[in-house]
């Protein structure tokens, strides 16, 4: 995938929920085109549907109407196994609450997605990525022995280790204090730039959103691209 070509495209996307009194449209006819290498922030109030949009874009949920195409292929036409393979090969996530496995060392946590892909040299690649995030001396530490910021750095290393085309970051600084959050953001954007990964970031933080090339506001079931 060359930089600038369309990586992900949502066409006429709609999501409906059943409620006790009928149905609720979270969004209707939503269109969004994301190019390879772009950084995009999705902002919006609580309950606006940011996570649902992310789930649809990542192929984790199915839309009520419309399609999401990844590299031109509609995600809804893929089987569970094909979607799993897509996630393994091309997509990575960074979560607000890190989600590291407590029984694995930092190195094993980073190596995990590589092992799932049955990639050779998982361990050396994992320690290389830990060095990249400044945790080269903490490879044998368990998550419980690391601070919140360090844990999120391990999660960032894990996300980049698989060399993904698309990275979803869901409130990556939400569980961290401001200073640590700032460091994490610097690291995330610098690695993203180095790797040329497409980044879709969900955040409440407008300052953080400003670091992205594009900002999309989700409100009242529609998106608006902010300048």
């Amino acid at each position: 995938m060359t930089s600038g070509s369309v990586l992900l495209e949502a066409k006429q996307l709609g999501k409906q929920f059943k409620t006790g009194s009928g149905t609720l449209d979270l969004f209707v006819n939503l269109n969004l085109t994301i190019h390879a290498g772009e950084t995009i922030a999705i902002i919006g109030k609580s309950g606006a549907g940011k996570s649902t949009l992310l789930s649809l874009l990542a192929g984790l949920d199915t839309a009520t109407s419309g399609t999401v195409e990844f590299e031109g292929k509609p995600l809804e036409s893929l089987t569970d196994a094909e979607r799993a393979k897509l996630r393994a090969d091309k997509i990575a996530f960074i979560f607000q609450s890190f989600h590291l496995l407590p029984e694995l060392t930092a190195q094993d946590n980073v190596a995990l997605p590589l092992e799932i892909r049955q990639q050779a040299g998982a361990e050396s690649k994992a320690s290389e990525w830990l060095r990249n995030v400044g945790l080269g001396d903490r490879t044998d530490h368990y998550p419980s022995q690391l601070s919140g910021g360090e844990q999120q750095r391990v999660a960032i290393a894990r996300a980049f280790a698989g060399n993904p085309a698309l990275l979803f970051a869901d409130e990556p600084t939400g569980n961290l204090d401001e200073a640590t959050g700032q460091q994490i953001v610097e690291q995330l954007f610098s690695l993203n730039e180095q790797q040329g990964t497409t980044l879709i970031l969900i955040t409440h933080d407008l300052e953080l959103a400003k670091r992205c090339q594009r900002r999309i506001q989700l409100s009242n079931g529609a998106i608006e691209e902010l300048s």
């Binding site: 609580s46 996570s51 649902t52 949920d61 996530f93 609450s97």
Partner: peptide, 12 residues
């Protein structure tokens, strides 16, 4: 298990 449950911004 839905993977979406890891996304906490909307507590969904």
């Amino acid at each position: 298990v839905p993977v979406a449950q890891l996304l906490r911004s909307d507590q969904s």
